[in-house]
């Protein structure tokens, strides 16, 4: 990363058509999420028994579900939910992991060993399984999805931040700060944290796609958001009851998941290319 400024990164991203399209997808999704209440043709919760299981038409572009709710409106509101959950998870896991990582790397010795062994145990869990266990124990809800997935997602950030802290703590400016009498806490947050921040943020971008997939998977299995919440995974699962005649009920929310994850993966690919030009 050294020698590469954020401006370079943005310039590279805009030059690469794939990552540019990823960026465009994400920006439009964010816009859709913000504008959902204004552009949704119907109320996502409003049921209409007379309109149930209508195939896609000009009146309902993505058709209606078993309760006559407009799927397009629900998919649009689902954008809000999915992005919001993913961001909350990134913040929770990112902050927790980074703090664990810089403390471990800066302290070294016993503390480092202990924290890293705990990290290893959490890494031995398949993520979805850990999330299922925690979501089941806490009870299914959106808040608990955030907690459950964060439990498995923080380890990557911890390892990354630790390796950065290990490298930085030997630098002269840290020595200088210590000589000036700065406390450990001050050194950690004023000098080491800022250095660890950009790799963590980049890793965050790379993790987004996986997090959205896991969250949707939890919803699909029944551990996440509960009906009638317009969460994409829940909607795909709901559509299974109307196979094969109501194919649109699960097809469109699933497509929304795919496009969102694709956006983040394309962007992540672009970033990876910049960091490791050999992959180009």
């Amino acid at each position: 990363m050294r020698g590469l400024t954020w401006r370079d990164v943005v310039r590279h991203l805009l030059k690469n058509p794939l990552s540019l399209s990823g960026l465009l997808i994400i920006v439009s999704l964010v816009l859709l999420a913000i504008l959902a209440p204004y552009i949704s043709p119907y109320d996502p919760y409003a049921t209409d028994p007379l309109q149930k299981l209508q195939p896609p038409s000009w009146k309902h572009l993505m058709g209606t579900d078993g309760l006559g709710r407009d799927i397009l409106s629900r998919v649009l509101y689902g954008t809000r939910i999915s992005l919001w959950i993913a961001i909350l998870i990134l913040i929770t896991a990112g902050v927790f992991g980074t703090v664990v990582g810089i403390v471990a790397g800066y302290a070294g010795g016993f503390v480092d060993n202990l924290l890293m062994r705990v990290t290893d145990i959490f890494m031995a869990f398949p993520r979805l399984i850990l999330a299922m266990a925690i979501a089941a124990a806490l009870g299914p809800s959106l808040t608990n999805v955030v907690i459950a997935i964060s439990f498995g997602a923080w380890t990557v950030f911890a390892r990354l931040a630790r390796s950065k802290a290990l490298a930085v703590r030997e630098e002269d400016f840290v020595e200088a700060a210590r000589a000036l009498g700065a406390s450990n806490l001050r050194i950690l947050f004023k000098h080491i944290l800022p250095m660890a921040l950009s790799p963590v943020i980049i890793q965050g971008t790379l993790s987004m796609g996986g997090i959205i997939l896991t969250a949707a998977g939890l919803g699909f299995l029944g551990f996440g958001a509960q009906p009638p919440t317009p969460e994409w995974g829940v909607m795909v699962s709901d559509g299974r009851n109307f196979m094969p005649h109501g194919w649109w009920v699960s097809t469109f929310p699933g497509l929304a998941i795919m496009i969102t994850v694709l956006g983040f993966n394309l962007l992540g690919d672009g970033i990876r290319d910049i960091l490791d030009p050999r992959m180009r």
Partner: peptide, 21 residues
Amino acid sequence: IVGLSMPAFWLGLLLLLVFYY
């Protein structure tokens, strides 16, 4: 890259829809 972005449960449903139903 599309493959990496596809939710497995949705792909399964699509396959069922096309090849079975």
